[in-house]
Design a binder for these strands. Structure first.
Lengths: 130, 130
DNA sequence: TTCGGTGTACCCGTTATATGGTACACCGAT
DNA sequence: ATCGGTGTACCATATAACGGGTACACCGAA
């Protein structure tokens, strides 16, 4: 599976997993009906304790992103795309909101801020015209 | 003083203080030579322990934003503006970078993202033409 | 000197994160 | 029925972050 975990970061591992799964569902990488890797497999793959994976899965289940098939595993719910897309929008909006608040509070000019945003946009999106 | 503290947030209080002081210096609200409120005064004002304030001040001192005059208090260094402006730029850039990474990783379209940014920009900067 | 104010160092309790280990109930395939 | 797989529920421990409390050394003014 395609999870990149930063164990030294300030964000809890289980939260990183939750976030990445939600973003993957929103992006279409994970589709409804698809199975998630088992807690033990993912734990051994990421060199992380099973309990941490289980906690992430429980949070995903509580957020109605994933369903627990007893004895089978975790499956992505069919109605999870809308939820995850909405969650992604809120997540991105919050990040933008916070960055803007800091910029304005720090006296950064609007033009400078817009320029920074556009520059980072091209840098990450390949160029801007895919 | 003009500090707004969110004690229930996921960001440590002392870090919030450090960030706000740096942004205030970058904005020009705090000027070189100006004294910061004493740890006890600010602590009682914000209903926060003195140690938390002291920790923020120590970090500011370590970052060469503020100087400790023994027995007198904390004073903003004259060369702190450049440092704080640079720190503000890095802070904002990091926030934008992270938000963009989430957005792209979640499959958000470039147009949708730019629209979200512009909307939030007008919302927070008054309108955009001050 | 004395006094009130300053930053600062130290100790401690609480909480969250993460790990490790064990055990249970369930399912599908053999 | 048996076996290996699954999620899940516990328990215990270690570590770090965070915040609160207390006491100390220092300074300037009275």
């Amino acid at each position: 599976m395609f999870f990149s975990i930063d164990a030294d970061g300030d964000i809890p591992i289980y939260e990183q997993l939750v976030r990445q799964v939600k973003l993957a569902v929103a992006d279409g990488i994970l589709v409804g009906g698809q199975m998630l890797p088992s807690v033990r497999q993912l734990a051994s793959e990421l060199a992380i304790n099973s309990n941490t994976i289980a906690r992430a899965y429980q949070e995903l289940q509580a957020d109605h992103v994933v369903e627990s098939l007893r004895g089978r595993g975790m499956v992505v719910r069919r109605d999870a795309v809308k939820r995850c897309t909405k969650a992604r929008n809120s997540l991105v909006a919050d990040g933008v909101r916070r960055a803007l608040a800091d910029a304005i509070s720090g006296g950064m000019s609007i033009d400078e801020l817009r320029e920074l945003f556009e520059a980072e946009l091209v840098r990450q999106s390949g160029n801007g015209k895919p």
